[in-house]
Design a binder for these strands. Structure first.
Lengths: 365, 365
DNA sequence: CACGAAGCGCAAACCGGTTTGACTGGTGAA
DNA sequence: TTCACCAGTCAAACCGGTTTGCGCTTCGTG
């Protein structure tokens, strides 16, 4: 037996299709008695309005889209996305909306997805991993998609295309981590960042650099990673091991050419601030594998605070980011935007440093 | 400017709406010359068929649904889902289909999602984490949703509601792990399973039990975990630590009441087979925190082989499951089912044991 | 030259809802 | 009594595609 339609309900209830619709939407008053008959008929026939028909008539699909453009192995280990998505879900489900998810390899594929989205698949999108010269805001604007962006810093009010931003102050958390390490006595602190084309990664690195210099320490130990375990290990290997562990990009001050390190272990960092937990765990493991003890010889910190980090030994000092909450707020903001009530920016408090055993005073030489 | 419609394209191309549709679908031949004019007009107007309208007309939404019913913290750390989803995506994108994702807390919520799905949101669904007495096959059948299930063992042909199954032989991988440990000389091997209401978790535990007994070893060290890091740690603590580290459920043979352990360390396992990597890593960390060395004092193995596991030290011996491939096959199978060409079962080869440093011979006492 | 068969394209019906202008009967005020 | 008004309902148009019955051309063949 095919699904019941609004026509069937109307017939059973002895009213017209329009009245059934009105009874449900409440867009116009319907007599109480009539409403009851309609509901009874609908229940009897187990009728639920067809989303497809409704979408066509209202030109609203009732779902929002989310594109994740990262390598599968990074997505798999990064704990941010699943929690963020779960958070989105809770807000969307409440509003009866659906979430359309796409995992793509590169920017071209992402653009293609938005094009498909715009052809009546979703009403709006949430943009993640915003880049410096991000073409997506203009693209979605052009496609007529409502959008919000998730970022890690206070919105720059002078941006050309202003989408609503849901932001968290990542810089403050990084500075707090650095302060913590300095308070423990560390003087050579390194940073393994995420891909610097991401605004959030660049901002965290910038915050790191600032914090370190504020304490009068050199900000020359910065390596760009890509959030994968492999890159965490490689970066750590360069920081702790070979003759020239740091990359040139680290030298933002533009010193012409610093002195070559006399003694590797003297230049070796006593603490490393990683841009996510996965790189931190991989780095920590690498350090151990070459005979260093954590935290006695090396302190490490992560970012994102996955459940696993709490159950390592030593536990990983990290930044709890409230990914769930951010997802919820992002989705809620998008829903507002879809109603035309878009706030230009929403701050999400959620970052806080969680201190665990992976941080201790540096070894005394 | 509003989006162009098929009517606009028809007008510009000088043909009727129907012809435009036919030119695109190829459901009936259209003259080459006409087709060109239609395509040119479409391109000029930047027209893409409205998915909503098409969905209404064809009663196919062009997307499939996936519901994940697990606790957010477990979803966040488990690396299976992201990879599985990425795999689905690649197959779906190829067919121009979308993926609708829902993360829910419990079974009731999951049922509600399927009800919404059935109201014209998706054409079919993929069922994960199948349980013993799973009500979902009957439910989705009743709702008229096409579905496939992902399982970890050869389909039981006698099941009442037979949905197409995409399966992998998890049991063989577990047996291989046990064989490996036994070959190293281990005689007390423990297992920390997933939640036993899941068929795959129960099957893996069953396989473990079988393998251990096949080697003439006792299968009394089995604890039920829930895939979270916390449960991995707790289970390990019970196995290695206290006076009665094993739970009664472990005694499947029904021995009335075994002898109390004389010496805790004698009864202590020298190897632990965990049902996923996260529990294994947490367990490994716990073991270390109480002074045991891995792998010298304790060998551990995981399941799922996340990228992180390869970069720990020691590396975690695990089972690579080809989650990406399974997602791809699951999606492809669902697409077939939607065309009415449903195979009753598809086997996915993908499991293979990856040996790393976390396994070594047991300590000699 | 006549006729049947293709080949093509049109127009209209249809999918299942939402929206709105018009119609109805009943009420209260003038 | 008349009339304006209001609440409540209906019928029809509409959203933007797909599908199909039918008619018009054009061609090949006897």
């Amino acid at each position: 037996m095919p699904r019941a339609t609004i026509g069937d309900v109307a017939r059973v209830a002895g009213v017209s299709k329009g009245t059934v619709s009105l009874a449900y939407s409440g867009n116009r008053p319907v007599a109480e008695e009539t409403r009851r008959r309609v509901f009874a008929a609908a229940e009897e026939l187990r009728w639920t309005p067809s989303q497809s028909a409704r979408a066509l008539a209202t030109s609203r699909t009732g779902s929002v889209g989310l594109v994740i453009a990262r390598r599968p192995d990074v997505i798999a280990t990064d704990t941010f996305f699943p929690r963020f998505i779960a958070g989105c879900e809770s807000a969307l489900a409440e509003a009866g909306m659906g979430l359309m998810l796409n995992v793509v390899a590169d920017q071209d594929a992402e653009a293609a997805v938005y094009a498909r989205y715009a052809a009546g698949r979703v009403d709006g999108v949430i943009l993640l991993d915003v880049e410096q010269e991000d073409t997506r805001p203009a693209l979605v604007e052009d496609l007529g998609l409502t959008a919000v962006m998730l970022t890690g810093q206070r919105p720059d009010t002078g941006s050309p295309v202003a989408l609503p931003e849901v932001w968290t102050d990542d810089a403050a958390a990084i500075e707090e981590l650095v302060d913590l390490l300095v308070a423990e006595g560390h003087e050579r602190i390194a940073h393994v960042s995420g891909p610097l084309n991401y605004v959030h990664a660049a901002a965290r690195r910038e915050a790191f650099s600032r914090a370190v210099r504020r304490h009068g320490l050199p900000a020359d130990l910065m390596i760009e990673g890509d959030f994968s375990a492999a890159s965490g290990r490689d970066a750590t290997s360069r920081l702790l091991g070979g003759p020239t562990p740091w990359d040139d990009e680290g030298r933002e001050d533009g010193e012409p050419h610093g002195p070559e390190p006399q003694d590797a272990s003297a230049k070796r960092p006593s603490a490393i601030v990683y841009a996510n937990d996965v790189m931190a765990i991989a780095g920590l493991s690498y350090a151990r594998s070459i005979g260093l003890r954590v935290p006695e010889d090396l302190s490490v910190t992560g970012f994102d605070d996955s459940e696993l980090s709490a159950h390592l030994s030593p536990g990983l000092t990290s930044v709890s980011t409230g990914a769930l909450l951010r997802g919820e707020v992002a989705a809620r903001t998008l829903l507002l935007a879809l109603q035309g009530e878009a706030p230009s920016a929403v701050a999400v408090e959620g970052n806080h440093v969680v201190r665990r055993g992976s941080v201790a005073p540096p070894p005394t030489t």
